[in-house]
Amino acid sequence: MDMGSYIVKRILLAIPLLFVISLITFVLINLSLLDPAVVVLQAQEVPQITDELIAQTNEALGFDKPFVIQYVNWLIACMQFDFGSSYVSGEPVWSLVGPAFLNTLKLTLVSSVFIIGLSILLGVICAMREGRAVDKSVRGLSFVLTAIPSYWLAAILIWYLSVKLDLLPTSGMDSFKSYILPVIVITVSYTGIYFRTVRSSMLSNMNEDYVLYGRASGLSERKVTLHILRNSLQVAVSIFCMAIPIVLGSTVVIENVFAWPGLGRLSVRSILNRDFPIIQAYVLILAVTFVLFNTISDVINAAMNPRLRKDL
């Protein structure tokens, strides 16, 4: 199968999944035990909630229509980036979520560069020195580092680097300096996981016959290592691709500690305010990103490894 038709097929496979995801996101919000109209009125701090007001709100927001029609309307609107308006402020959701998503994406991409770079470096070093002191200590350290709650590490770093030494800003997103602390914290908590994947993938490749045959043919150690790397990173590429949406979805705590104006902070605030349209948009956007990156990772994998193109 050539690459073009593989990509088309892979995208066609993702579409039904996207529909199911949108449906679940929509149903989830409707599962709430609260009457949405009451939530809206509460969020707008209407002093007296009367039945009449509830009926009015229901009509205004279309909550009285049949479920299917509500869903279809919502879906069509979503595809045009119209996620409704915030219950609290009345602003369009996209005007809040859009910029926040961009900010989170910036943080995620910068962190991912460090996570991926460090993981490959450490993974390769440890695999080459399997069982030696370097390998053992890096691995041991990685278990402890991944066990550190990110917000705790963040607090310690803020306390030491920003307050005591006054080197870096404690919060906000003003200059490149603001990136340093959040990026360090995210990198520390994820590198441990991804470096282990690179390491084990290297190790399993080192035991393959092609490595033996390469060596037996007199290839230099550098060339043999390049072959091992090429094959190990193939596995790693798909994992790294998935790292981006995973980090994107879990910057929630970090953003709150560093007052980063991103999706995580917006979503926590919306949860506390019960601002459903924002929560809905947040879940939908991240789930779609997840599926998108999953598709991209499959495509990259197939491009690198022709064997995978056969079965789909």
Binding site: L17, T25, S32, P245, I279, F290, N294
Partner: peptide, 22 residues
């Protein structure tokens, strides 16, 4: 299962908390 696994875990936990409350 595939559908369940295509949702990012952290996000869904937040979503459930968002709907049911803290």
């Amino acid at each position: 299962c595939d559908v369940m696994l295509s949702f990012p875990g952290y996000v869904m936990t937040l979503a459930v908390v968002g709907i049911l409350g803290a």
